[in-house]
Design a protein around this nucleic acid. Structure first.
Lengths: 229, 229
DNA sequence: TCAATAGTGTCTGTTAGACATTATGGA
DNA sequence: TCCATAATGTCTAACAGACACTATTGA
């Protein structure tokens, strides 16, 4: 793909590139990020987002998947690219670019030693760059909640409708109306009931459901003018 | 940002990076892409997407904006990142990564010599990689139609409501109902009428409107379950 | 006068949100 | 028995889509 449009070969061909993977799960009613402790990462004393370089013969996608698996000890239930950050603002002659991926993991996964699920409010302790990466990852995930079975990737195989609604509320960042939520679910026919019920704490037991790939996608109606400015 | 998590420094630090900018406009009822002719690009004999490398001290965003301006001779009305492509699938020891940006330009802009607005159906003539980049750019734009004033960036300062509807129809890829469209526009209060009218061809003259930043963002209603599977 | 386009009013079916009510278990 | 949660039915307001109609120009 030889291109000579602008910049010299020297100025464009060699940059440092890191792939960072923001792994997310839901814990205690909030999104949490998997961070590596000072021992696991090569970092001096801070917790950091799992990341690394592209190995020879590896695509960017491959790299992200490898990093996710190394950090989790298992395969994430969802992985997608969230964008590229940076370039050289500093005086260095070499650009530093990070490609950010967002990954999802079902709730029950316990973190290994030297790793920890950190609730979102606490990420204020991270560097501005790391917070930018997390923001990008969450924005990428939220942008797809309507069209991909994102919420189901954060739940075990069977779940209650209240569980599902809680995940949607976390992802959308706003409360949902219970009756409306269930009606829309029923209309879309994307879950199927099992014969099992689960009793947790006080109230009436909840029926367990399973994700069922939809028969036909509903024709999208209307136009939304949520224009921000 | 020293990280040593995985991969050797040699394998991760040096890759070739190109920033490609997919510039889009609406022409004849379809999206068109700005391509550089063989003379403008360093390419042998094919038309290509404007692109280049990051210069020292430049951020990725800066680079994209510079490339867009060089290709257009003016500033695009909108520019956003669409994602990173590639990595090394080939046997080469060095990864080749392209960061794709999507840019928008109002309709009236005429292309300079050696450049040309190519309607989307004709991009089949391009390489698979280039088509991937264009697909990514369009997907990024379409994903934001509801929330950013994307359509207005493809129109001049004043426009008729039929013009606006045509742009939305191109961006959404489906016909819209005229009365519904106008009702929704009125409810969202994102356009303001001018005192001017424009007569084109046969029918009744159309009133001209101007984009008016919305007072308050409407609370988004409901949940959509457009889940694909 | 006709054809073509702009703009509006009304009706209807769908849906989101509010509210209320029943169901069913644990404390 | 009381309380908490699940699940469901009903009402209403908002809204999308269909249709019809008026308005206004050029051919």
């Amino acid at each position: 793909m030889p291109r000579q449009n602008s910049g010299t070969r020297a100025s464009r061909n060699r940059v440092s590139l890191i792939i960072d993977v923001v792994l997310l799960t839901t814990r205690d009613g909030a999104l949490s990020v998997l961070l590596l402790g000072p021992a696991s990462s090569g970092n001096r004393d801070r917790w950091s987002i799992p990341g690394g370089g592209v190995r020879p013969g590896e695509s960017v996608e491959d790299t992200a998947m490898r990093i996710a698996r190394e950090a989790l000890g298992s395969t994430p239930s969802h992985l997608e690219q969230a964008g590229a950050l940076g370039g050289a603002r500093r005086t260095s002659a070499e650009a530093a670019v990070t490609v950010v991926y967002a990954g999802l993991v079902p709730v029950d996964s316990a973190p290994e030693v030297g790793k920890s699920w950190v609730p979102l409010p606490e990420v204020r302790l991270l560097s501005a760059r790391q917070r930018d990466e997390i923001d990008r990852a969450i924005a990428a995930i939220r942008a797809r909640v309507d069209h991909l079975p994102i919420a189901f990737r954060l739940l075990p195989d069977v779940f209650t409708l209240s569980d599902l609604q809680a995940v949607y509320e976390i992802l959308l960042g706003r409360p949902l109306h219970k009756a409306s939520f269930r009606r829309a679910l029923h209309a879309a026919a994307i879950v199927e009931a099992t014969e099992e019920w689960r009793s947790e704490g006080r109230g009436r037991p909840a029926q367990l459901f399973r994700f069922a790939p939809p028969r036909r996608r509903r024709q999208r109606r209307g136009v939304r003018f949520d224009i921000v400015g």
